[in-house]
């Protein structure tokens, strides 16, 4: 009984060291797996549009294998002038400056115009209606600040090996980017 009592601490210590070694081995294994997973994520790439090379040709709307296209207009509100007369929203020769369909540039009515405070209006893209035709992007770039631009939305892009819009793009504006940084966003300029 006494021997058994003496041997217990020795057994516990050995068990403790064994447990510690096992724990460290598991930790090291987990760390290795985590590192590998991070590296795999970093190495993975997805398609994205470089807004500085995009010429708003409209092909993103018709060439993507998805219907409607995975390309959507995104709007940088920090760059927007909140204009009453927004050339990304209104037809160039719009009869009136209100939200009537006959005045709107977007062929699917995918831009929502909201009065914030006279004379400032906010413009929001309704992604479910946007088909990525870039008509609003062209209007915004021609007259405004270029706050509207196209991006491939990765909640719907199927990431084809051979991206149909990348192949059709006349300026090679579509390229692979790291999957952990899947968007090429415009930056608001500081003076």
């Amino acid at each position: 009984m006494a021997e058994a009592t003496r041997s217990e601490p020795s057994s516990d210590r050995r068990g403790f060291f064994r447990g510690m070694v096992r724990g460290m081995a598991l930790l090291a294994g987990g760390a290795t797996l985590g590192l590998l997973a991070t590296r795999a994520q970093a190495a993975r790439t997805v398609w994205q549009i470089d807004p500085h090379k995009c010429t708003m040709c409209g092909r993103c709307a018709v060439e993507c294998v998805l219907m409607p296209s995975a390309v959507k207009c995104v709007h940088s509100h920090g760059m927007c002038g909140y204009c009453e007369l927004c050339t990304g929203f209104f037809e160039p020769d719009a009869p009136n400056l209100h939200e009537g369909a006959e005045n709107q540039l977007c062929p699917t009515g995918a831009i929502e115009r909201t009065l914030i405070e006279e004379p400032y209006y906010e413009y929001r893209i309704k992604e479910n209606q946007c088909i990525g035709c870039a008509k609003c992007v062209a209007g915004c770039a021609a007259f405004g600040n270029g706050s509207m631009y196209l991006q491939i939305r990765h909640d719907r892009c199927v990431d084809c090996n051979d991206c149909a819009i990348a192949r059709a793009c006349p300026t090679q504006a579509i390229r692979r980017v790291p999957a952990d940084q899947p968007y090429l966003l415009k930056q608001v300029n500081e003076p």
Binding site: M56, C57, G58, R59, P92, A142
Partner: peptide, 22 residues
Amino acid sequence: DRSESCPPREVPQAFRYDITQL
């Protein structure tokens, strides 16, 4: 379908922003 020599699909006129006449 996969060749670069194939003509691109036609972009409808409704998608074009054209202010040449104006």
